[in-house]
Structure formats: structure tokens, C-alpha cells
Write a protein that binds this DNA or RNA. Structure first.
Lengths: 137, 137
DNA sequence: ACTATATATGAACATTTGTTCATATGTTTA
DNA sequence: TAAACATATGAACAAATGTTCATATATAGT
């Protein structure tokens, strides 16, 4: 399985990510002067940060993963209990757990034969709740 | 283009979304009793809410859309200026604007020949900032 | 009305992604 | 050590998604 990552399409020539606006490469704006556009761009986060942001939200952008996280919000769980609780296969769950772990949204600890998963930190909880608040209006 | 939506795979028989745990259909837990599992499930948000949550985050889960939103955070912009600023085609941008608009994350107003887009409300800003804080550590 | 300008959209296409199936790895117990 | 149990993983596959291309729609200026 591919690891979820950003920038799926190879950048087109002349349109590379983070490309600076040089004199030869000034896009033509409609209502903005080039200077205004530069000022605007300066007020945006760095490209790299935005790509990481998309990657972060990608973790929450799948219903299986959201359900996993929402269960782990309540309490630590081992893989088979989590699978039974959510009604998904052990394999599918394991794949998703790996993705969430690589993104550092969850952590695990071994206890003999079983492995218990839990949320990595409070940040995960706060991101989750923020979205929840919005969805609930 | 398909509209971004959740639940991509048709539910398998016996594994439908929101399926109740009836007597005939009790998953076997490892460390949890059925009663504990029910109590845990009760502390999770409703299934429907979780699916909507995934849909919401899906909007932020693409780098192009994140870049669009991060530009509109700074100021209202018309389509061509936004395309020039981000270095993407007018068509690709227009498709993404439609998706963001349907999700009510942005709004637009016509001014003669051009159409200006802006963030729909403060909630979008707060979700954006929340993620940004996490990414920046 | 005609042309230019600004934006939207449908279809096709390639890539990404989540699941399933089979199998591997690791741990405990007999 | 063998068998059973708990979890992980690679490959294949189907579905979803974002882009491009061509074209449609809408408004303004002449």
C-alpha cells in the first residue's frame, strides 16, 4: 500500500512547487498588481507547511480512520477489540493503524500477546473536537 | 467529476454501517465484555456525525484546496487572480472552487464579469488554524 | 449582434487509496 | 517444539479523485 502523501501529480515544467516569481516568470493578474500578489503570498504560510497540513487532514479524511480515532478517544484498545467494535476486518484495521501510527496520531504498546493502541497526544483530541464542533453546527 | 463523499465501498452483508449488535450478531471481544463494548460505543459520536466529519476533513485533505483556502484567508480573490497566484490552471481551480463551495467552506459574489471568492465563515478559519498549529508543532 | 473576457463543466485519463486475500511475524501456552 | 493466538504486511483489485482538454455559459464593451 502506498503511503498517503501529498503532491500526486508530477509538477508541470514552469509550475514547480514553491516556484519564485522572477521577472521572466510573472503571472499576469487581473485585479492585482505583481507587488500586491507578492504581498499576499507573503501572508500565506510556507508551501511546505501547507503540504504538511493537507497530509495531516488526510488522516482524518477517511471514515474508517475517523471511527478508529473516535474509539481510541474513549479508551485504549487492542486490535481485535477495535476490529470487533467497528465491524471491520483485522487486516483492514491493521493497515489503517499503521498509517495513523506513521502520522504520529496514535501510539501503541505491547502487552504480551496483544498490542494496545491509543491516541498519541492531546493535539489529536483537539483537532478531532474542532471538526466535531463544526459538523454539529 | 465525482463529488467527494464518504463510504466508497458498498457495505458487506452483515457489516452494514450503524449495524446494531443483536443477539445473533455479537462480535466476540478479546478483553471487552459485550456490555463494555456497548458502553464504549455509546461514548462515541453517532455514525452519521463521523461520516460527516470525514467529509469535512476531506476538503482540507488536498494540497490544492489547502492552498486555495490559505489564499482566501488573506483576502477575497477572483478566479483568474487565484489561478495566477497559485500557478494552477483556471479549469482545475474552478473544479476545486465548486467542491469547496458545495461544502460551504467558501462563498462567492459576482461583480460584473468577474466572480470573487472568499471564506464562508470564521469556522473555516479556526479549523485551518487548528491544523496549522499542530503542523508547526 | 459580435467579439473578447471571465468562469463553469463534462469526459477521459492517470494516480491514489482502501479493502480483501493470503501469508508472514511474533508471542504465549501446552 | 508445536500449536494457538494476535498482529502485520505484500499483492491485487476496485473505487475515488484531481487534472487536462475541449467546450459551454455569462457578462461587458464595441
Amino acid at each position: 500500500m502506498f503511503i498517503l502523501c501529498v503532491r500526486r501529480f508530477p509538477p508541470k515544467p514552469g509550475n514547480e512547487r514553491g516556484k519564485k516569481m522572477t521577472k521572466e516568470n510573472v503571472p499576469s493578474f487581473l485585479h492585482l498588481t505583481a507587488a500586491q500578489a507578492r504581498a499576499l503570498a507573503k501572508r500565506m504560510p510556507e508551501e511546505e507547511i501547507l503540504y504538511e497540513l493537507a497530509d495531516l487532514y488526510k488522516m482524518f479524511a477517511d471514515s474508517t480512520r475517523v471511527r478508529i480515532l473516535s474509539a481510541l478517544r474513549v479508551q485504549e484498545l487492542c486490535v481485535l477489540d477495535l476490529a470487533a467494535l467497528l465491524g471491520i476486518s483485522q487486516s483492514a484495521l491493521s493497515h489503517q493503524l499503521r498509517i495513523l501510527k506513521q502520522a504520529k496520531l496514535i501510539k501503541c504498546r505491547r502487552e504480551g500477546k496483544i498490542i494496545c493502541y491509543s491516541l498519541a497526544d492531546e493535539h489529536v483530541e483537539s483537532i478531532f473536537r474542532q471538526g466535531l464542533d463544526h459538523v454539529r453546527e
